[in-house]
Nucleic acid binder design. Sequence first.
DNA 1: ACCTGAACACCGTTCAAGT
DNA 2: ACCTGAACACCGTTCAAGT
Lengths: 226, 226
Amino acid sequence: MAEIDRPARRVGRPRTAVLTRELIAEAALRLLDESGADGFTMARLAQALRVRPSALYNHVDGKEDVIAGVRELVSDRIDVSAFETQPWDAAMRVWAHSYRVAFAAHPPTVALLATLPLTGALRTMQMYDTVVAAMVRAGWPEPEVLPTIVAVESFILGSALDAIAPADMFDPSGAEDAVPAFASAYEARIASLGAVPPADAAFETGLAALLDGLRVRHERVRVAAS
Amino acid sequence: MAEIDRPARRVGRPRTAVLTRELIAEAALRLLDESGADGFTMARLAQALRVRPSALYNHVDGKEDVIAGVRELVSDRIDVSAFETQPWDAAMRVWAHSYRVAFAAHPPTVALLATLPLTGALRTMQMYDTVVAAMVRAGWPEPEVLPTIVAVESFILGSALDAIAPADMFDPSGAEDAVPAFASAYEARIASLGAVPPADAAFETGLAALLDGLRVRHERVRVAAS
DNA sequence: ACCTGAACACCGTTCAAGT
DNA sequence: ACCTGAACACCGTTCAAGT
C-alpha cells in the first residue's frame, strides 16, 4: 500500500477537478478518526486524497480551514428539532445528548474543535436561533437566554473533553494511604457503575443537576406568556 | 534584542547547571502568556532561557512534559481549602471560582491543558481527596461523589474554553432577518450585562444552576451522618 | 551530568511551471 | 482553474563531542 496511495497524475491541470472542499473535509474527518489529532497533517491528508499537499490550497485556506470544514460535518449531526415539539427542558435534554453523541462519534476531533474558536457560520447561528426562540416562548426572560444556552454548551464541551481522557488516569492503586477518601470513592464508583463508562455517569449527573437548577430558575423568573 | 537573547556559552558542561525543570516550566508559562499557544515552541522556549533547544532535553522528556510542568504551576493556584471550613455547596462555589480564575489568568494555557490528558499526579489526587472527604462528611452517597465532582470540573473547563473565544464571534449584525430570535436575545444580553463579559455571565448562570440542582439531589439522597 | 552543534525526518505554506 | 514539483522557514527530537 505504498505507491498505490500516491498520485498517478502528470503535471498540469487535470481534465476534471480532483478535489472539492467537501471531499477534503470528509477525508479529513476519516483521517482524524483513524490516526488521531497528532497524525492529522496536511501531507497525510493529501496522501489520502492521492494528491500533492499544495493541491489542497486551491480549495481551502489552510489547515485551520480544513478543521472548520470538519466542524461543519460534525455539527450537522446535532439535532435541535426537539425545541419545535417539546417543552424547553425536555428539548434541552435531547439537544445535549445529541450534541455529545456527535462529538463522541469522533473522539479525536474533540480536542481540535474545542481549541479552535467556533466559526460564526450562519448555520451555527440558525441552531441558536431555534433554541432561543423556544426558550423565549417558554417564558425565559430574554437577557437570560444566551447565558443559559452557553452554560449548557460549556458543560457539554467540558464533558466531551473528559470523555476522551484515559479511563484509568486517576487510579489511586498504591496510593491508598495518601488519598484514602479518594481511593474509597473510586472503588465505590466502580462498584456501582458496572459497565457504564465513568464519563457517561458524570455527564448524566451533571446534566440532570443543571436542568434541575434551570427549572428552579425558570419557575422563579418566568415571564407570563402573552 | 537579537543576539542578546542567544547563549553566550562555549561547548561542554557548564560549571553550574543553567536549567531546572522548574525554571523551564516558569519560562514556558511566561512564553505562553506572551506569544500564545501557537508561538510556543521548544526553540523559542530555549531562546528565552538562553540555551540551545537540545539542552532542554536534559531536564524534560519533551514538549508534552513541559506542558505538564505548566499545568502543575497553574493547578497549584486552585484553592481547595474552603472544603475544610465551609459547607460542601459553599465550598464548591469557592473552589469553582478559584479554579476558573487560575485558568483565566493564563488564557493561552487553557487550550493546551484542556487538550492534553491530566497527569495522574499525586498532587491532583490530593486535591480530589480533600473534596471527596468533605462531600462524604456532608452525607453524599459515596458512589455519587466522583461523578458529581467530575461534572462540576467539566463545566468549569468548558467555561474556561468559552472564555477564551473571541467575544464578537456570533455577532448577528447583518443577519437579523435570518435569525431574528437570536439577534434579539443578543441585543438583550448586551443591554443587561453592561461591562460584564458574557462568558462571566454564562459561568455564573451555569454554576448557580448546577449547584441548585446538586442541592436538590443532596436533599434527596443524603445519608444520615453517623 | 549538562551544555553546544550538527543532523534527521517532517511540518505548513508559497509559487512557478504546466495543461 | 487546478494540478505537480521545488523550495522555504521552521518544527521536535536525537546524539556525538566537549568539559
